[in-house]
């Protein structure tokens, strides 16, 4: 089942998820307010989550460890997590605390949620539909095309850069220096061919667009007719509710929207353990 949403609805979803991410600090509330609307679209549009999340696993895990360690060590409050004999002190500074642990864990969970949600959104709203929305909101035609080409050119550029790197490695190239200036220079064998190829391609793309009838300032007739349906209206209403919850809890500083809710849950679990 792949249900059609108007692309404008999906762009609104983008904004709401981003809004929730900025307004609500508490992980569990974040999770609830971000995942619920997205899960609905993912389910209705039959998007493969494995495909989106698979390549991110390693990066996300590494970042999560770094963030956790950094925040765990940094948190300034002083409620000890362990008995006194297990506390780790440098000078007079207490490093491991219960608050530090819960804060670090929360930061990581929240960061991972936001990152994964954004990755899911790119799969939920394909570039083509994003470009359609740009059309609908009457951005200049040339700007819309430039954005579309730029977004769809990314995979080509990555492949090309891979080919160039292979070609130079096959001639014995590798970065051997730690000196940042020399390191910068050592990238020339990759960057010069990549830039030259991009410049040549952009000229050919422009010629190709013109030879297919594209003229600046000329009105194109889009073949797509997007219309808000019942599903869009219901979903937008739901998104507005989510945004309101985020405003209420985020703006007025209610306990649930701040760090303390998830912190208390974690601490409760730890105490039981």
């Amino acid at each position: 089942m792949k249900l059609k949403f108007d692309p404008r609805t999906l762009v609104f979803l983008y904004f709401v998820v981003f809004f929730v991410g900025t307004m609500v600090y508490d992980f569990l509330w974040d999770l609830l307010l971000m995942v619920t609307p997205l899960a609905i679209v993912i389910y209705l549009r039959n998007v493969s989550i494995k495909k989106v999340l698979g390549p991110l696993t390693l990066t996300v895990s590494l970042l999560a460890i770094i963030l956790f360690v950094a925040n765990f060590l940094y948190y300034p409050l002083s409620r000890p997590i362990f008995n006194e004999e297990y506390q780790f002190l440098i000078g007079n500074r207490l490093l491991f605390t219960l608050d530090g642990f819960t804060f670090g864990l929360q930061i990581v969970l929240r960061f991972v949620t936001i990152l994964l949600m954004m990755a899911c959104l790119t799969e939920v709203i394909p570039v083509s539909e994003l470009v359609d929305v740009f059309h609908k909101i009457k951005l200049p035609e040339s700007l819309v095309l430039a954005l579309g080409i730029g977004l769809s050119y990314i995979p080509v550029f990555i492949t090309e850069l891979g080919d160039i790197q292979d070609a130079q490695q096959a001639r014995g190239w590798r970065i051997k220096t730690r000196n940042p200036i020399k390191k910068g220079k050592a990238w020339a064998p990759l960057l010069v061919p990549a830039i030259k190829s991009s410049m040549r391609r952009s000229e050919l793309l422009a010629a190709s667009m013109e030879s297919r009838g594209f003229r600046s300032g000329f009105k194109r007739v889009s073949r797509k007719k997007w219309k808000f349906g019942k599903l869009d209206y219901i979903y937008i209403f739901f998104l507005i509710c989510i945004a309101l919850v985020a405003i209420i809890y985020g703006n007025w500083g209610a306990k649930v929207a701040h760090w303390t809710f998830t912190g208390d849950v974690i601490k409760g679990i730890l105490e039981v353990l």
Binding site: V131, L204, M209
Partner: peptide, 11 residues
């Protein structure tokens, strides 16, 4: 033209 990648414009 001969290089297809240089002629593909749309998503």
């Amino acid at each position: 033209g001969q290089d297809p990648a240089s002629q593909l414009i749309c998503p």
